[in-house]
Computed example of a mutant assay.
Amino acid sequence: MPVFPTERSVRTTPEGLLWEPSERWVRGVKGEVTVVDSRQPVLVWEPEVPVPCYAFPREDVRTDLLNPAADPPTGEHRGARIFYDLRSGPEQVANAAWTYPGADLAGHIAFEWFRRWGSGLDHWYEEEEEIFVHPRDPHKRVDALPSSRHVQVEIAGTVVADTHRPVLLFETGLPTRYYLPREDVRLDLFEPTDRRTGCPYKGTAEYWTWQGGGEVPRNILWSYAEPLPAVAAVKGLLAFYNEAVDLTVDGVRLERPVTLFSKTLRP
């Protein structure tokens, strides 16, 4: 069967990596120096890592800024062959880049993304839009849909939210999140915290912690004050971790899902 240019073609390496060519123009900047400028990047998915990274043709990378890593890590980036330290001006970033083994990705260099693991370059751009945390997965979809479902939220037996005006956020690979108007949430039972997280699909979230006692995880409630345009419908609304509260939707109590966040939710 012929493969047309508009069809996606995810490929597998003998080492168990998935990769796919991208048509996006991607640039990575450290300080005022453009370290990566590529119109032929590839997306790489490592086993058991839920988000992709980019790898770039060597000729699109400022390899003069890279030196073999002085202290390469072990057990990171499935089968990584060579790690590099990045020096830009007076600053050096350890293990900022690496190469993958095998012929499929030979000649490509991958980079850590700032705010993903706390290292890497300062800014990344796809076309003219800055992208945070990690590259967006072209096979992932995020939809925020206003609804009239009846949603109730309980924590430790206390009803903390009750609304008929939720916005349901459907995100590939995650449970449906229910974003609720502030006036329908007992926000007086929560205390704001200094926690902030970033998402390349939604923006930067702020958090609140339950003040009612019991074995309830911290930062259980969040909101996007200025969400990205694709999910503008959730602006200023509040959402709870389904994994740690009791949700009832249209009279049906939902089971608490087990997700990649479950292990990080701690009292």
Rank of each mutant, 00 (worst) to 15 (best):
Y241V: 08
E15P: 04
G173Y: 03
T63Y: 10
R115P: 00
L180Y: 00
R256L: 02
P90E: 10
R182N: 10
P227K: 02
D60G: 09
F56D: 02
G251C: 04
F170Q: 08
S148Y: 01
R256H: 07
V51K: 03
H134E: 11
D85G: 12
P73L: 08
V249S: 09
F111M: 12
Q152G: 04
F261E: 07
R24W: 05
L265A: 12
R8H: 14
C53D: 13
W19F: 15
V133K: 08
V245C: 10
V33G: 03
R266H: 06
L238Y: 10
P146N: 02
D188T: 11
P257R: 14
D188N: 10
P267G: 05
I109P: 10
A69K: 04
L180K: 00
G203H: 12
P229M: 11
E59T: 07
G118F: 04
D162S: 11
W25P: 00
T259K: 08
A97L: 09
P138Q: 08
R136P: 03
R253H: 06
I109A: 12
D71A: 15
R87S: 14
R62V: 07
T12D: 11
E91K: 07
N219K: 05
R24I: 10
Y224V: 05
Y201N: 10
Q92H: 01
E76W: 03
T197S: 14
V252Y: 07
P175L: 08
P21F: 13
R78L: 09
V160M: 13
R165Y: 14
F111P: 11
L145P: 02
P72R: 02
W45Y: 15
G102H: 09
W222D: 01
W222F: 07
W98Q: 00
R78W: 03
L121K: 09
A106E: 12
A225C: 04
L260I: 06
V26R: 13
E48Y: 02
V133S: 08
H123S: 14
F261I: 01
V249Q: 12
P5F: 02
G107F: 05
V245W: 15
V51H: 13
R58E: 10
G157Y: 12
R141L: 03
Y241H: 15
V33Y: 01
T172P: 04
W208G: 00
E112L: 05
N242L: 10
L145E: 04
G251K: 11
V153W: 08
G120L: 03
A232K: 15
N67V: 13
T264Y: 10
E206R: 03
R81W: 11
L43F: 12
D246Y: 05
T204F: 09
E255P: 06
Y84S: 05
P14T: 06
G107K: 07
W45K: 14
T197D: 01
T99C: 10
L43N: 13
L168G: 00
L18P: 03
R218A: 13
S119E: 02
W25L: 05
T248H: 04
E130S: 07
A96L: 12
P135T: 11
T163W: 04
R27T: 12
W117L: 11
H139M: 00
S9M: 13
A233M: 13
F83M: 12
R115I: 13
E206N: 01
E243N: 05
A233F: 00
I131H: 12
